[in-house]
Write a protein that binds this DNA or RNA. Structure first.
Length: 418
DNA sequence: TCTGGGGTCCTAGGACCC
DNA sequence: TCTGGGGTCCTAGGACCC
């Protein structure tokens, strides 16, 4: 049976959400109607465009570009700092409406959902009517607009949503693929990024239709599995179901930071690793996971990334052990070059319940380590994730983005002696 | 002092074993 | 003075997404 799938995308999500909030707080200009952008902190070298208004787009401002460059294109650009706590709340309000109306839906990102509404015509009318009703309801109740793509599979629904923005419903049904999808530039196809687009252009493929008509064997030979996937997408073929889980189990977690200035001295860098580790280990424990593998990576002043990962002797979620491992890994790969950004990752996650000790573990010693982490975590859960830190980490840059996960706004700083 | 941060997946090539 | 080959596992780096 043919499916009906919606893709719902909040228009310029961060910007819209900030605009709605500012209007509510009495600010008299709607950011969405003037050239504006949500931007990072330039002083901390995070000055990029995170979202832009449609008037800003008309000046050629693009997401991801440095703020100075955006300002050069549009000198009157109004730049507003990001408010991740607000975005997280707005995202929940958005999905609450969808959850109320549809039994099968999937959160794809903070501002996007897929909905499977196969067989709901009896309740909600034909798919276009149903999508229109959802679009108006979100706008009316929450004050921001969405674009909804309607089709028979996820990829086509997502591509359809791109056709008209903002505040619109568009479709690409299978019989419309040739007319609506094929004329688009190939780099607009889902999963065709800059690198693949460049390679495709060199092969003489510039439109999605060119890709659709290329021999799939050639695509497979040139791009491997990925080549076959994008060939299928170009032909409107995608069997992926809308998975109605609230949240899939994470497979890895990571935390990284761009340093306020390049660092090349180990005594400056290790405290940053210590801070990253404290934060990420706390997250790992809140997930109820242990990890079997750690990664350290950095980006140098030439934007070259270097990484190294290592399996652990046994799974762990103990801050001290994870710090020891990440520090030694870093020392293994670091050659003294200037570092611009630094990160750590924990992967091969397993449920904490299944993690066993080894013969070499001293149960009393382990018990002490667990107790220390538990005590520290109870402070963090009351006062915020960064309220308690290893003393050495206090001299490292702060991680504001952590607030994204923090229900508590207040921060009380305490020095932790380990 | 131009380019964030958090994810997932794939692949090429090296190590190692038989 | 020629130097197998096949299989598995591991991992660094890079692709993509938001």
């Amino acid at each position: 049976m043919a499916r009906t799938v919606f893709h719902v995308d909040v228009n310029s999500a961060f910007l819209s959400w900030s605009a709605v909030q500012m209007l509510r707080n009495g600010y008299d200009t709607d950011l969405r109607l003037i050239p504006s952008a949500i931007g990072g902190d330039e002083e901390k070298r995070k000055g990029i465009v995170l979202a832009k208004s449609i008037p800003a787009k008309k000046y050629g401002v693009i997401t991801g570009e440095p703020l100075w460059q955006a300002r050069k294109k549009c000198p009157e650009l109004v730049i507003v700092p990001a408010n991740y706590g607000l975005y997280s709340r707005m995202s929940s309000l958005f999905t609450e409406i969808i959850d109320h109306e549809f039994p099968v839906w999937q959160k794809y990102s903070v501002d996007e959902c897929f909905i499977d509404c196969t067989g709901m015509e009896g309740i909600r009318g034909d798919p276009i009517q149903s999508a229109e009703a959802l679009r108006s309801e979100i706008k009316e109740r929450l004050g921001f607009t969405v674009s909804i793509g309607v089709s028979s599979c996820k990829v086509l629904a997502k591509m359809a949503g791109e056709l008209k923005k903002p505040d619109a419903v568009s479709s690409i049904f299978p019989y419309e693929v040739e007319k609506k999808l094929w004329p688009l530039p190939v780099d607009e196809l889902f999963m065709v990024g800059r690198s693949t687009a460049r390679a495709l252009n060199l092969m003489g493929i510039s439109q999605i239709g060119d890709l659709a008509k290329t021999d799939p064997e050639i695509m497979k030979k040139r791009f491997g599995k990925h080549g076959l996937s994008i060939w299928l997408y170009a032909n409107g073929i995608d069997q992926e179901p809308v998975v109605s889980t609230m949240r899939e189990e994470p497979k890895s977690c990571s935390q990284s930071v761009t340093l306020p200035h390049d660092m090349s001295c180990e005594k400056d860098i290790i405290p940053v690793i210590s801070r990253l580790c404290a934060a990420l280990a706390y997250r790992l424990r809140r997930l109820g996971k242990c990890c079997c593998e750690v990664t350290v990576f950095f980006k140098d002043d030439k934007f070259v990334t270097v990484s190294r990962q290592q399996r652990l002797f046994r799974p762990t979620d103990i801050s001290g052990e994870l710090f020891e491992k990440t520090r030694s890994l870093f020392r293994l790969i670091y050659d003294g070059r200037p570092i611009r950004a630094l990160g750590i990752g924990f992967s091969a996650l397993t449920p904490k319940e299944g993690c066993a000790f080894t013969l070499f573990d001293d149960p009393a010693n382990l018990g002490r380590k667990f107790a220390i982490d538990a005590a520290a975590d109870s402070v963090r859960s009351r006062f915020g994730g960064e309220s308690l830190l290893p003393a050495s980490a206090l001299i490292s840059p702060t991680f504001e983005h952590l607030k994204r996960f923090e229900p508590n706004e207040g921060h009380i700083r305490t020095v932790c002696p380990f």
